[in-house]
Design a protein around this nucleic acid. Structure first.
Lengths: 151, 151
DNA sequence: TTCGGTGCAAAGGGTTTGCAACCTG
DNA sequence: CAGGTTGCAAACCCTTTGCACCGAA
């Protein structure tokens, strides 16, 4: 965990971004939720509670900058923007299963495009989205049988 | 096209929704864009220009009601909510190719879940999203070679 | 010392709400 | 006629902006 933070700090340095208290705190918070998506509004609320005086500006701008340099993944589904620490910093193509209960992200091996070559003659396919939702094995084992997504 | 409008009106009646001038106008506009997604903000702007005095309320609430009864499909990708007339009213499962230039929607035969059975033991997969983006054959033939998505 | 980063407050954009007046069925 | 629907304006929520001050490098 510590070395992951160091890796993130290195990335900031490489991109000539200063290491401020606020950025460090944001990274630490993201790190504690490693592997899970967190609602960006919740991140903002948490940071502003934990560090009174911190501004929306700081949270939103930094999360966006973190995404630009590859420390964070943003994801907007069902009208909510979520962020997650991108712990391994590898950008290789993959898709996600997202637990509707705990937000945990499981990376998938398979890409539907493997099965979709040449299905639309004459078209240029430049992008695709694919995501699975449900309840992860941990939550299911803990007895959660239906979506508990917060409103 | 006329019978499609009639079908939509029937659905409204079946759901005990009154046929008002505004709803009729909305349906007609959606019908002219049949098979294409339109930015909901653009729909709102158009309707309010074409019918001065029409309120946001009317546009947004009716589009939501149309969706609930199956006349309209809503779709939010890349921070934008889009809307399209669901001309055939069949709700069978399918996915979309969406042209980044003209918004035209092409229904896909294939569902990635056909290839994805039993990949995550212990998980409950309750939903999935899958969509393709690019340039449709028509736009490509017309010489559009890159995305012209409006900002 | 120097800019990049910050906090504050306010604006912005899309969407929803409250309510009296209106109009379809 | 009754209750669903509308227009208006204001509220709402999330996010961004402008700007003077602050503090990493």
């Amino acid at each position: 965990m510590a070395e992951t933070l160091i890796a993130a700090v290195d990335i900031l340095k490489q991109n000539k971004l200063k290491i401020t208290k606020q950025r460090h705190a944001l990274l630490e918070f993201l790190l504690t939720n490693q592997g899970h998506y967190t609602d960006i509004v919740a991140v903002d609320a948490y940071m502003r509670t934990e560090f009174p005086g911190m501004s929306h500006n700081t949270v939103y701008r930094n999360l966006k900058e973190f995404e630009e340099v590859g420390i964070v993944e943003q994801n907007t589904e069902q009208e909510r923007t979520r962020v997650k620490y991108q712990c391994d910093f590898h950008h290789q193509h993959h898709h996600h299963f997202i637990c509707q209960n705990c937000g945990k992200v499981t990376e998938l091996q398979m890409c539907p495009m493997d099965f979709f070559a040449e299905q639309l003659p004459g078209y240029d396919i430049t992008g695709h989205s694919f995501e699975l939702y449900g309840i992860c094995a941990d939550c299911k084992a803990a007895g959660i049988t239906e979506s508990l997504v917060k409103n």
